[in-house]
Each structure stands twice: as structure tokens, then as C-alpha cells.
Computed example of a mutant assay.
Amino acid sequence: MTLLIHENMSRGRSRKGWLDSFHTFSFGEFRDPKRMGFRALRVINEDWIIPGAGFAWHDHADMDILTLVLKGKVRHEDSLGHKGETAAGEIQLMRAGSGISHSEMNGSEGETTHLLQIWIIPDKTGGTPGYQQAALPPQDTGWVDLAGPAGSGALTELGSDTRVSVLQARDGDVTPLPHTPGRGLFLHVIDGLAEIGGERLTAGDGIQIDQPAPDIRWHTDGRLLRFDLA
């Protein structure tokens, strides 16, 4: 297999009165044996949360959880006593470690929050839970590193050999996808219209790559999230 496109409309979906959530990989009641994650990448959920609502207190362990806020803001609180907000244009990493309880609520009184929540499996279980948060670096075009092991990205405490970056592309750009033998790429289209190998790409599509792949050609401005995975 060179590349596999996970089309946006084939994602799982959870709809509640306060939440509309799309699942790239199996999550909750959505179960697809062909979509159980890719390497260390286990979850990509795209969520819309109405004002005054959110995820009540719940537990996590042995997972690195990234929250990238695209619109609005998220108010979070946890069992370690942390309280704070993550706003549009910011990214948060919660290392669940040996175990943590937390809540995530829409922090706005009048605006729907739109976010991506990503779960990445760490190489080792246990450890001390912790947080990092950062604003996305200023970006006109090209790639910006967001998260990775120590020394890479704005957030530097991922517990796996995974590197996360975001691309701002412009209409007409061509994005090459260099391949490192033994590693895999997973791409998530945040917004925009593009194509790869003659296949159309639009917001919510995922592209799973484990061999050299064609360039991506952009037909509008757009953003792309890239996971470089061991």
C-alpha cells in the first residue's frame, strides 16, 4: 500500500444535543476494523461543541492527547488542580501518564467551539501526568512544527517518536511528501481543496502513507496537519 484516503464522509459520527463529532478512526460506537488507528496515532476527532456544554469529568491513562482549537475556546479543569483555557490558534498537550481525570467545556457564552482532538499512544505506560500549551507560531506559508519528542516543535513532551506539524498552503502550491524508509505519514486536511494522485482532497479527509507518494496540489488556500510516525 502506498496511500489510503480516509474520505471525510466515511468518518464515524456522534451527534448529541450539544456535540457534533466526526471520527477518523474507530471511537465510541463507531467501529471499523480497518480504522483502528495508524501506528501510534489512535484518534482524530473533529468536534463542534455548543456554548455552555462539553465533556464532563472523565478519566484517561497512558495516552498523549492534543487539542487544537480552530474556533472558540475550551475551558479545562483536572484532578491535579489545573484550570485554564485554550483558545483558537492554540494547541494543548495533556500527558495522561498513570492516570488523570479532567473536564473540557466550551469556554464561550455565545460561540460554538470547533476543535480537533488527537490521541497518540506513548511508547511507555505510566509516568507523571502533565500539561503543555502553546500558541501556534506565526505562519504565512510552509510547515510549522507543533509537537514532538524533546527538542522538536512548540510542545516537546510527546512520549513517542511522533512529530506533528501544520502546513499553510496557498492556491497553486505544490506540497511534496518526502518519505523516510520505515516511517509513516498521516495527513489530515483542516480546510481547503487539493488533490493527490488525481484524487480530490477536502476538509476532513485523511491520507495514510507508508511508501513514497505523489505531491499534493492545492486548488485553494488550505491547511494540512501532518503526523510523522515511527
Rank of each mutant, 00 (worst) to 15 (best):
T2A: 15
L3N: 06
H6Y: 12
M9H: 14
S10N: 14
R11K: 08
G12P: 01
R15K: 11
K16P: 00
G17R: 08
G17T: 10
L19D: 10
L19R: 05
L19H: 07
S21P: 02
F22Q: 08
F22Y: 10
T24M: 13
S26D: 07
F27N: 04
P33D: 15
K34T: 10
F38A: 06
A40Q: 13
V43A: 15
I44R: 08
I44T: 08
N45V: 04
D47C: 06
D47I: 06
W48K: 09
I49Q: 02
P51I: 02
G52D: 11
G52A: 11
F55C: 00
A56R: 14
A56H: 12
W57G: 04
H58S: 12
A61L: 09
M63S: 09
M63F: 12
M63I: 10
D64L: 04
I65Y: 07
L68C: 03
L68H: 12
V69W: 06
V69G: 07
L70E: 15
L70P: 03
K71L: 14
V74R: 05
H76Y: 14
L80I: 10
G81D: 08
T86K: 13
A87Q: 09
A88R: 08
A88P: 03
M94P: 00
R95P: 00
A96Q: 00
S98C: 06
I100D: 13
S101Q: 12
N106T: 06
S108W: 05
S108K: 05
E109R: 09
H114I: 01
Q117T: 11
P122A: 14
D123S: 05
G130I: 07
A134T: 12
A134N: 09
A135L: 09
P137Q: 13
P138Q: 14
P138D: 14
D140C: 08
T141F: 09
V144N: 09
D145V: 00
D145E: 15
P149W: 02
P149V: 01
S152E: 05
S152T: 06
G153A: 12
A154T: 11
L158V: 00
D161N: 13
R163Y: 13
S165K: 03
L167N: 00
R170E: 13
R170G: 13
L177T: 01
P178A: 12
T180M: 07
T180H: 04
P181M: 05
G182R: 05
L185D: 06
L185C: 02
H188V: 01
V189M: 15
I190A: 04
E195P: 09
E199A: 15
E199G: 07
T202C: 04
T202M: 07
T202D: 11
A203C: 10
A203H: 09
G204W: 02
I207S: 11
P212S: 13
A213R: 00
D215S: 13
H219A: 14
G222N: 03
R223Q: 09
R223V: 00
L224D: 00
D228F: 07
A230E: 14
A230G: 14
